[in-house]
Design a protein around this nucleic acid. Structure first.
Lengths: 210, 210
DNA sequence: ATCCACTTGCGTACAGTGTTCGCATATGCG
DNA sequence: CGCATATGCGAACACTGTACGCAAGTGGAT
C-alpha cells in the first residue's frame, strides 16, 4: 500500500481526471440552500444538513460564508433574482400588476420566503434586489409619479404583496399543521387580486389628481 | 443536620408564610415572554432565559405550555389583545385608518413582532385575534361592503399594514446592525400614510361603484 | 525542483438550544 | 390520616452555530 502509484498513470486510473469536483463556492452553496429550503422547509436548514447535500463538512461552508445569517441574506437576494419585472409601457397598470404578481408568484414558489423576509427583510440590498428595485421604480416614474412620490407608491405596493404573502404562507402552514383540507388556490388568487385592484385604483385616482 | 426542624416554628421561620409565590401559570409566562422580547429581542428568547426571569427552571414551563412554538402563538394572541379597534361611525374612513394605525403602532411597539408574524402568521386564531377580527370586519360592513366582499377588503388592509411593518422592522434592524444614523420617524410615518391613503381611496372608489 | 505564502477542507470541541423523563414535593379530597 | 393528582425541577439527549488548529493543495518566485 506504500507508494504504489503507477509511474505513468492512464487517463482512467488517474485519481480525478480533470477537475475533481465543481469545487465549493458561494454560488453552489446558495443554490443548494434554496433547493434544501424548497424540499424540506425553513427549520430543516442547518449548516450540517446543507453540507451533507454538498458532499462536504459543515465547517467548510464557513470558508465561503461568514455565518448562517449571511447565507440567508444571500439566499434572499437569490430569490429577488427570480423576479421578472415587466418593461414600462404606454399603459402603466398592467406592468405594475405584473410586477406585483411576479413577486407573489416567487413567494408562493418558496413558501419559506415569507418567514425569511420577516427576519432579514429587504436585507443589505444585494445586487439582484438593487437591480429589480430600480426596474420597479422605473414603472412608477413611467406611470407619471414625480421623483419623490414614486418611492412611496412603490413601497406601498411591495408592502401589500409581502404582507399578503406572509399572511397566506402562515395560513397555509396552519392548514398543513392541522391537517385540514386545503383552501382552493382560486379563492386566494381572488383575494389577492381584489386588494391589488383597490390599491391600483387608489394610485389611478392619485395620478388623475396630479 | 438530621430532622432539625423546630417543633412549633414561629411565623417568621416558617419557610413561606402565606402563598410562596404568585405561582407559575400560563398568563405569567406569556406576559414575561413579551417583556423579555421587548427588552432583549427575538433571538434572546429561550426557555432557559425566560425561566430565569420567572425564578423557575426551564422545564417547569412545560407544565403550562407544550412547546416554544405554542408559547409564541400565545404571545402573538397577546399582542392582538393590545389593539384597540375603533367603533363603527357614520364616516367609515376615519375608523378604518384608526384601525390600521393601531395595528401599526402595535408592531412598532414590539419590533420583533414582524419576524414572529412571518413564522406563525395570524396563527390558530386565539381569543384576542378572533375578537379583534370581528370588530374590524364590522367596520367594513358599516362602510357598506357586502358580506362576501368585506373580508377581502379587510384582508387587503391588514396585508398592507403587516407588510409595511415587516419591511420597516427589517429596515430598522439593518440600520442598527450597520450602526447607521436613524431614519426619521416622520418620514416613515409619511410613507405609511401615503400607501394607506391610496388603499382607502381605492376602497372609496369601489364603494361609489357599488 | 525547492521554498514559501496563501487558500481550502475538515475533525474536534464548546456553549447553548428545545425537549423528555423520572423523581420529589405540594395540594386537594375522601 | 391516606391517596390521587398536579406541579417544580435536575439530569440527560440530540442538535444547533461556529471558533480553532491542523493537513493538504496551489501558485508564484527563486
Amino acid at each position: 500500500m506504500t507508494s504504489d502509484k503507477p509511474p505513468t498513470p492512464s487517463v482512467w486510473t488517474r485519481p480525478h481526471p480533470k477537475r475533481t469536483r465543481p469545487a465549493l463556492n458561494r454560488e453552489r452553496i446558495v443554490a443548494e440552500a434554496v433547493r434544501l429550503l424548497d424540499d424540506e422547509g425553513l427549520e430543516s436548514l442547518s449548516m450540517r444538513t446543507l453540507a451533507v447535500r454538498l458532499g462536504t463538512a459543515a465547517t467548510s461552508l464557513y470558508r465561503h460564508v461568514t455565518s448562517k445569517d449571511e447565507l440567508i441574506e444571500l439566499v434572499v437576494d437569490e430569490l429577488y433574482g427570480e423576479l421578472d419585472v415587466p418593461d414600462p409601457a404606454a399603459e402603466w397598470r398592467a406592468p405594475l400588476a405584473g410586477c406585483a404578481r411576479s413577486l407573489r408568484a416567487m413567494i408562493l414558489r418558496h413558501p419559506w420566503a415569507a418567514s425569511v423576509l420577516g427576519q432579514v427583510g429587504l436585507a443589505e440590498l444585494g445586487p439582484n434586489l438593487a437591480h429589480q428595485s430600480a426596474r420597479q421604480l422605473a414603472l412608477f416614474h413611467a406611470a407619471g409619479f414625480p421623483p419623490g412620490e414614486a418611492e412611496r407608491a412603490m413601497d406601498g405596493l411591495l408592502a401589500y404583496v409581502i404582507g399578503m404573502g406572509v399572511s397566506e404562507a402562515a395560513y397555509l402552514s396552519l392548514l398543513v399543521r392541522t391537517g385540514q383540507t386545503e383552501h382552493p388556490r382560486e379563492l386566494r388568487d381572488g383575494t389577492f387580486d381584489y386588494g391589488l385592484d383597490r390599491y391600483l385604483d387608489g394610485l389611478q385616482a392619485r395620478l388623475a389628481a396630479l
